[in-house]
Design a binder for these strands. Structure first.
Lengths: 352, 352
DNA sequence: TTGAAAGCGCTAACAG
DNA sequence: CTGTTAGCGCTTTCAA
C-alpha cells in the first residue's frame, strides 16, 4: 500500500540503485537526476521503509530502553531526557517496563535483540552474568548500576551512575550538626544496586559521626510505601532519611496523620530532588542526584558504546550528588517521650 | 554475528522452509524433525530476527505510542497500563514524546510509519486531517480525543475517550450545594481536545446552576502552572476547579503560600484522580477519569482497529467519570474582603 | 555517473 | 510432510 523505492525509480526513469543513492543524499549522483528523483519521491509521497533499510544495513536506528517502573518520576525524567537527546539524532525508542522483575527484564531484552542498535538498562535487576552476555551481542549502557567485578566489563558495555556518596555524607553531617543522633533509613528495593550504594554511604557516614542508623525496609519505593514505613520507624529516631523522594513524601504524609510535626519533632530527608518545587510541604531537604543528567550522560554513552572495539576514550560516567537543604530538617527536638502537644505550634511555624 | 535460520536448518539437516515451519510451531511438521530443529536452534542459541520476519510477513509486532508529555503522571499511567496489556500479547512499544507540538508529533508519526502495526495517539495535537490521512495508512487508535466530524471517521480509526460530563456536572452541583456562586477554572492547553470538553462541561453545568465561571489560562498544565495561576484567579471566587490534579496541587501550594486556607476560604477540585492517596493535603476532591482504564480500553481497541474492514462491532469506547469528594471542598465562606485571620484556624481544623 | 545483480533473514506459495 | 523458489524493500559491490 505504501510507495516503494522501485516505484519512485521507475517513475523517475532511473534504476533503484540510483534512486537509493539520490535519496541517501551522499554518494555521487549528478544533480539533475538527483533532483528529478527527489521530486518524484515527494510527488509519490514516498517514505523509505526502515525495515528494508535495516535489513540491508544491519542497523535499525532504534534504541531499546528497559526501566524497572515507568510510573516512577525518576525514570520518566530519565526517559524524557533520553528521548529528547536521541530524537535529535533521529533515533527511535523501544521501551519496556520490567516491573522490577529479572525474568520479565530478560524477556524484554530477548525481545529487543536484533531490533535495536543498542540497549539501555536502567537500574537493571539482571544478574551480572546476564548483562555481560547481552553486552556480547550488542552495545549496552548500564544506567544507575555498576557491575561488581570491574575487570570483566565487556568492551560494548558503558556504565553511567550517580555517586550518592557526597550527598549522603552531607546529609549525615547536616543532621549531626542539628543535634540528631538517631536516624532511620527508609530502604529501597533489595535488588537495587543504587539502593545498596545509598544505604552503604549513609551507614558509613553515620558511623563516622557516632550516630545510630536504623534500617527500615519498605514494601515499595513509593508514596504508599513511605506512609506505611512511618509506623515501623523505631522510637527515639529524630530524623528519617529515605531512598527516594516518593518515600519521603509518603513519610511526610504518614507523620502528619500520626500527628508528628515536621521538622519540629522529626526531620525528613529525601533523595533525587525529583519533586516539583513546592509539592512537598514543608519543602523537602533532599539529596539531589539528577535523573535528567543521568539521561543526558546515557544518551552520550550510547554513541560511545557503539564506537567501541578500539580504545575506550571516556571512562564510565558518574553524576555527582549534593545535599539541598530546605524546610523539612531542623534542630533535633529533646525527646520527651509521650507528650505531643506540638502539631498546631508547628503548623504556625511553617505557615509564617 | 547472530545465528540465522539457515544455520539452524543446515545443522539440523533440513531446508530453511522446514526449519521456519518447525520454529513457527503451527504448520504440519512431523514431531521427530520438529524436535530436532528445536533442539538445534536451542543449541545454537538461535533468536529469530524480527526484521526478517517483519519484512516477509508485513507485520512487525510493534505498536507506536505518541504522548504529549512523558513526564505527566496521567500519561505514564496510561502508558504503563498499555505496556502491560500489550506485553501479554508479545507486542513491543515504540514511544515518542511530542511535547505538545504538532510538528514534532507529525515527525514522530512519519518515523514510525512502516515500523509499527498500529499507532496510538494520546491527546493528539494533530489536525483532524492529518489524523485521517494517517489512519488511511495503518490502524490508529485515538486516545483522549475525538474527531470533530463524526461522519469522516475512517475504518482504521478507533476513538477511546473519557466522558468528563458526569464528573464535572457533579462537581458543579457539589459546589453549588456548598453555597459557592463564583468559580474559577484553571484551563488546560489550548490545543487539547479533552481540555475543551472539560471546560465546556463545566461551563454548561455552572450556567445551569446560576454560577459564574471565570476561565484562568495557565502556562503549562502542571504543578508550577497551578502555582502561578493562583495569582490570576479573580477576586470573589470561592472555588477553583482545575483541568488536572497537577494544576490543582499547584494551586493548593500557591494558596498556602498566599495564606489562603483550603477549604475554609477556598475550595479546590482537581481532575483525573491521578495522585497517590494522601499526596495532597488537604486531600483533593477530584473528578475521576482513570488513565489506566483509558489504557486498557486502548489496548483492546488496537485489536479492533486491526481487524477492521468488515463490520465494526464495538463502537468507540468511552470511560465514564465521577466526582470523588474529599477534604479540599467545603461550605463557601462569607466573602468579607480584607480580613484574613484564618490560616491558623484552618490548619487546626485540618489537623483534627 | 549509472545499472545490474546479489543478498540482509525470513515466510509463503507451489510442487514433489 | 518437506524442499524449491520467489520475493518483502532496501543497500551495495562490481561492471559498464
Amino acid at each position: 500500500v505504501a510507495t516503494t523505492i522501485r516505484q519512485v525509480a521507475e517513475a523517475a526513469g532511473v534504476s533503484v540503485a540510483t534512486a537509493s543513492r539520490a535519496l541517501s543524499g551522499s554518494t555521487a549522483v549528478v544533480s539533475a537526476t538527483r533532483d528529478r528523483v527527489l521530486e518524484t519521491a515527494r510527488r509519490l509521497d514516498y517514505t523509505p521503509s526502515r525495515l528494508g533499510r535495516s535489513l540491508a544495513t544491519g542497523s535499525t536506528g532504534n534504541i531499546g530502553v528497559i526501566l524497572p517502573d515507568m510510573t516512577n518520576p525518576f525514570y520518566t525524567s530519565f526517559l524524557a531526557e533520553l528521548e529528547t537527546a536521541l530524537g535529535e539524532r533521529d533515533h527511535g525508542i523501544l521501551v519496556g517496563d520490567s516491573h522490577e522483575d529479572p525474568e520479565r527484564e530478560l524477556a524484554l531484552v530477548r525481545r529487543m535483540l536484533g531490533q535495536v542498535d543498542a540497549l539501555v538498562l536502567a537500574s537493571s535487576r539482571l544478574p551480572d552474568t546476564s548483562i555481560v552476555e547481552t553486552a556480547a551481542r550488542l552495545p549496552v549502557v548500564l544506567a544507575n548500576r555498576r557491575l561488581e567485578a570491574p575487570a570483566s566489563v565487556p568492551l560494548l558495555l558503558r556504565q553511567v551512575t550517580l555517586d550518592h556518596g557526597p550527598g549522603f555524607r552531607a546529609a549525615a553531617e547536616h543532621l549531626h550538626e542539628l543535634g540528631h543522633r538517631h536516624v532511620a533509613y527508609l530502604d529501597g528495593p533489595a535488588r537495587s544496586w543504587s539502593g545498596r550504594q545509598k544505604r552503604a554511604s549513609l551507614h558509613e557516614a553515620c558511623s563516622g559521626l557516632g550516630m545510630t542508623l536504623a534500617i527500615v525496609p519498605t514494601d515499595s519505593p513509593d508514596f504508599s510505601g513511605g506512609r506505611a514505613a512511618v509506623a515501623a520507624t523505631p522510637e527515639g529516631c529524630t530524623a528519617i532519611v529515605a531512598f527516594n523522594d516518593q518515600l519521603a513524601l509518603g513519610a511526610l504524609s504518614g507523620l502528619r496523620d500520626a500527628g508528628v510535626a515536621v521538622p519540629a519533632r522529626m526531620s525528613v530527608v529525601g533523595c533525587d530532588d525529583s519533586l516539583p518545587e513546592g509539592l512537598a510541604w514543608p519543602s523537602l531537604t533532599t539529596v539531589e542526584s539528577s535523573a535528567r543528567a543521568l539521561g543526558a550522560l546515557t544518551a552520550a554513552a550510547i554513541a560511545g558504546a557503539g564506537a567501541a572495539s578500539d580504545s575506550r576514550p571516556e571512562e564510565d560516567a558518574v553524576v555527582p550528588s549534593r545535599l539541598i537543604v530546605r524546610e523539612s530538617t531542623a534542630v533535633a527536638s529533646v525527646i520527651s517521650s509521650g507528650v505531643s502537644s506540638l502539631p498546631t505550634l508547628t503548623t504556625e511555624r511553617a505557615f509564617t
